[in-house]
Amino acid sequence: VEPTGSETQVVARIGTQDIIAIFRDRRRVEPGDKVHLRPRAASAHLFDKDTGKRI
């Protein structure tokens, strides 16, 4: 969990995959908390694991 001014970055694990979620407002999230996410597909940035290129 990293507050960065107007955003909060949260590294989360879904199964065995780590993701980074960015909240546009302050959130009270502590390490180990369960976070329910409902991502906006149009706002998602996905990258190929092998090449690092955006999908």
Rank of each mutant, 00 (worst) to 15 (best):
D50L: 13
H36Y: 10
E7C: 08
H36N: 08
G5T: 06
V29F: 01
V11N: 07
E30V: 15
T4Q: 13
A41W: 10
Q9M: 10
R24F: 11
R27L: 08
Q9A: 06
L37M: 09
R26I: 07
G32R: 09
T51F: 04
R24L: 12
D18E: 15
Q17F: 04
D48C: 03
D50T: 10
G15P: 03
L46N: 05
A42G: 11
T51Y: 04
A12E: 02
A41M: 15
G15M: 02
T16Q: 15
Q17T: 15
K34C: 06
G15I: 01
D33W: 11
H45W: 09
D48N: 10
D25C: 07
R27T: 01
T16S: 13
I55N: 05
T51W: 03
F47T: 05
K53G: 08
Q9R: 15
L46G: 03
H36V: 15
R54S: 06
I19N: 04
G5Y: 05
V1L: 10
E2H: 12
S6M: 13
I55E: 05
Q17R: 14
I22M: 08
V11H: 05
D33G: 03
G32M: 08
G5R: 03
E30G: 07
V35E: 08
G15H: 02
V1F: 11
R26W: 09
T16N: 13
T4K: 14
R24M: 10
K53D: 14
S43V: 08
P39R: 02
S6H: 10
A12Y: 00
R28K: 09
F47E: 02
K34F: 10
F47K: 04
E30Y: 15
T16K: 15
A42S: 13
H36W: 10
T4P: 00
R28L: 09
Q9F: 13
E30C: 06
I22A: 06
V1P: 01
I20K: 06
R26L: 08
S43K: 12
S43H: 12
I14C: 08
L46P: 00
D18G: 03
F47D: 03
P31H: 07
L46M: 11
K34A: 08
T4W: 12
E30W: 14
P39F: 06
G32L: 07
G5C: 06
D25S: 11
F47Q: 03
Q9N: 11
F23D: 01
V29A: 04
R28M: 09
G15N: 07
E7M: 09
G15V: 01
A42T: 11
I55M: 09
T8E: 02
A44W: 02
S6K: 14
